[in-house]
């Protein structure tokens, strides 16, 4: 009886959805058109470009449509190291950003909860770097790390840096730059979840004789997981495709080229569009797989 009482209403709801659907579709149209124009079309064009072959006897940078799958083999053989390096750097940067961003978010979202003004101020401080172009900020780090600059001077004084060694142009400076640039992207989503965290749950953990560490591990962390996951994604995905920090004009050198740098060089200098397109597709595919695994794993509680 109880169940049958619900059935008619459900049917009615179904019908009303169906009746509304043409309007709903119409409302979806702008979004769909946008996606087709600015996502599907470029993606298709990218895919087609990645299969092009050079025009025999043609000019530098002249290509024609073909089905040259070898382009993928070529880029993976030639730029395998740079591809792996990108994901390694991006993973490191995400990890460091998490190590810095989580306590920061915790402090702002939970410790400062009783001082709204201070909380707002701290949030502004996290976002403040965005008011300056990140190119300028990265260039500023290059100056700070310059050989005759204060940091390198100190390091060589205490003997960490030998003669002829430098901070810029190393893996350290590139990962540093990535971490620095992406900290806000990590901090803000975590803050958003921690800010809404019901402190009574933490209190209950204490009441049940859990140590603060256990409470943190079994209560706070799982509740903050959505923020941590979106923070890592927001950091890892753009960081693996980043071409500024690792560029020779910023914090990198010839030994720190990441996949973004390679794509840039192939596109702008070598005019090897198929290789650049193939690398972009590889980058997208790998990110999709990695992120898929990550989200699936963290969706179950295995990860935590």
């Amino acid at each position: 009886m109880a169940f049958s009482a619900f059935t008619p209403t459900e049917q009615k709801a179904d019908a009303s959805i169906q009746k509304r659907s043409p309007v709903a579709l119409l409302l979806l149209l702008p979004g769909v058109i946008f996606l087709v124009l600015f996502f599907v079309t470029p993606l298709l064009s990218l895919l087609l470009t990645s299969l092009q072959e050079p025009v025999p006897g043609g000019f530098f940078g002249e290509y024609r449509q073909a089905l040259r799958w070898e382009n993928y083999v070529f880029v993976l053989e030639t730029y395998g190291t740079q591809t792996l390096r990108s994901f390694g750097y991006a993973a490191l940067a995400s990890l460091f950003a998490l190590l810095i961003g989580f306590p920061l978010a915790y402090f702002i979202g939970i410790t400062l909860r009783r001082f709204p003004l201070l909380q707002a101020l701290c949030l502004v401080l996290v976002i403040a770097p965005f008011f300056i172009s990140f190119l300028l900020r990265t260039l500023a780090w290059k100056q700070i790390f310059a050989i005759e600059g204060p940091v390198a001077g100190f390091f060589s004084m205490i003997g960490i840096l030998g003669p002829g060694q430098s901070i810029t142009g190393t893996a350290f400076s590139v990962v540093f730059g990535l971490t620095y640039n992406f900290i806000p992207f990590m901090t803000l989503p975590i803050y958003a979840t921690l800010e809404r965290l019901d402190l009574r749950l933490v209190e209950a953990g204490g009441d049940l004789y859990a140590s603060p560490a256990t409470t943190f591990r079994t209560v706070t962390l799982p509740l903050a997981a959505p923020g941590v996951i979106s923070g890592t994604l927001l950091t890892f995905i753009p960081a693996s495709g980043d071409y500024i920090n690792a560029s020779r004009d910023f914090l990198g050198s010839t030994e720190t080229a990441m996949i973004g740098t390679v794509i840039e060089a192939n596109f702008l200098v070598l005019q090897n569009y198929p290789a650049a397109a193939a690398l972009s597709i590889v980058l997208m595919a790998v990110i999709l797989v990695l992120v898929g695994i990550y989200v699936k794993r963290s969706g179950t509680e295995d990860l935590l």
Partner: peptide, 11 residues
């Protein structure tokens, strides 16, 4: 150019 760039990219 490809050879020169391969040095710049460490490839």
């Amino acid at each position: 150019q490809a050879a020169f760039q391969s040095v710049l990219l460490g490839a």
